[in-house]
Design a protein around this nucleic acid. Structure first.
Lengths: 139, 139
DNA sequence: ATGTATGCAAAACATTTGCACCTGG
DNA sequence: CCAGGTGCAAATGTTTTGCATACAT
């Protein structure tokens, strides 16, 4: 249940937090913007302010429950942190996203951070391309 | 000279464009925010508006002269496009950026795209971390 | 109870745009 | 000269914050 996950994370189990966590869990596949989470709440008839959505998502991020990504477009997107890091393969035609991890790349990233004296906190790798079904011969 | 580079790119060689290009070339090492470019102009006594800096940087991006990155922090940074791809190591404390390329990672990315039937068009890898000089012992 | 969380509105940023004026070719 | 470029200010879009009220423990 969501409320115990929240308490585990050191957060009081308030209604907005429970609802927002549930929405993130329901939308496990997608990366949501704060505004989209807010809309999803309203669609469920919940009266939660946008400011609260931002506050809660930030708390979730601090608690390690979600990851905030800064893709292009001047806004952040959030996804549930399911514990295992992954990278993204994005189809520029369809917008489809495939997740993957590659042990060799992970290894090299660690080595590179170390070489430069960095204590790595995070890393993101996005490969943009055209997926098989969208490759038209005439393109 | 900057003005011929601009004409090559199909842009009229106006004073703001020339100055902004020169600033980007002088700061070849760094990734600059629009605000920083604007400050650099003012430091040189040039009377260029911030809106123009944004407009010119966007034109430069369209013309392939600069690359716009969306790292953390809710703002974009721009760097000269020198034609060769590279990845980034970003210090989350200072905002410093180090560029690198790793042949093994490049190779793996190609392989992964291929495995998934993707025709790769682009890729970005950012490693976030704390650089040596910002690592406090007690942390 | 009581300290924390929330909602609302306003503020704070980053970026874009409308419009009258200026400038490069 | 004249289309396109620029400066300024106002508009936009996103995220944060101040403050009085509501809520979880």
């Amino acid at each position: 249940m969501s409320s115990s996950e929240l308490k585990n994370a050191g957060l009081k189990a308030t209604l907005p937090r429970i609802k927002i966590l549930e929405i993130m869990q329901k939308n496990r596949a997608g990366h949501m913007r704060a505004e989209e989470v807010y809309q999803a709440l309203r669609d469920e008839g919940e009266d939660v302010g946008l400011a609260t959505v931002y506050r809660v998502l930030t708390q979730f991020e601090d608690a390690g429950l979600v990851i905030r990504h800064h893709f292009e477009g001047g806004h952040a997107v959030f996804e549930l942190d399911e514990g295992h890091h992954h990278d993204h393969l994005v189809c520029v035609k369809s917008g489809n996203v495939i997740e993957f991890t590659d042990p060799i790349i992970e290894e090299r990233q660690k080595a590179i951070a170390k070489e430069h004296g960095f204590k790595m906190t995070d890393h993101t790798l996005v490969i943009y391309g055209v997926s098989a079904e969208y490759q038209k011969p005439e393109d």
